[in-house]
C-alpha cells in the first residue's frame, strides 16, 4: 500500500513550523512518504537565517517557558530529523522570484519547483494537509 502525505506550508511563524514539522517527522517515522511544499511566508520555515529564530504569535510570548519545560526540540533539529528520514522539501519558485530569494538562501537538501512539482506528488497522496 502506498502511504503518502502531502503538506502545504504557507505561514511563517513558530507555531506554523511546529505544526508542519511535527506531523511530517511523525509521518516519516511511520513509514509514510512525505513531501512539503513551502510557499509564501512558509518559506521562512526553511530559510537559512530565519528558521532558527521564528517568532511566536503576538501576545503568546509567555509560552516560551512552556516550550522549554516540555523539552520541545528546536525547529532546526526537527528539520534535520525530517530530512534524515527522507522528507522531501520543495520551495516554491514563484514565491522565491517575487521575494527575490535564491536557492542558496535556504537550507541544504531542498528542491525548488512550481505548483506542478508538488501536485505531481500530491496527486496520489492519501492525506493532504495545509498549514
Amino acid at each position: 500500500m502506498s502511504n503518502k502525505l502531502a503538506i502545504i506550508a504557507s505561514n511563517g511563524g513558530l507555531f506554523d513550523a511546529y505544526k508542519v514539522f511535527n506531523i511530517a517527522t511523525a509521518a516519516a517515522a511511520t513509514d509514510t512518504e512525505v513531501a512539503i511544499f513551502f510557499t509564501f511566508e512558509g518559506l521562512n520555515l526553511i530559510h537559512k537565517e530565519a528558521y532558527g529564530q521564528l517568532s511566536m504569535p503576538v501576545g503568546k510570548e509567555r509560552l516560551e517557558q512552556g516550550f522549554k519545560a516540555a523539552n520541545v526540540p528546536s525547529i532546526p533539529e526537527l528539520v534535520s530529523m525530517a530530512q534524515e528520514m527522507g522528507v522531501k522539501i520543495i520551495a516554491c519558485q514563484m514565491t522565491m522570484d517575487v521575494m527575490n530569494l535564491k536557492k542558496e538562501d535556504f537550507i541544504d537538501g531542498i528542491e525548488v519547483g512550481g505548483a506542478v512539482t508538488f501536485l505531481d506528488f500530491a496527486q496520489d497522496a492519501n492525506v493532504t494537509l495545509t498549514f
Binding site: 511535527n22 517527522t25 511523525a26 517515522a29 511511520t30 523539552n71 526540540p73 528520514m85
Partner: peptide
C-alpha cells in the same frame, strides 16, 4: 524520558 512528541516515535523507528 523528558522528550516531547514526536521524538519518542522518531527514536523508536
Amino acid at each position: 524520558e523528558g522528550l516531547a512528541c514526536p521524538l519518542p516515535v522518531v527514536k523508536t523507528k
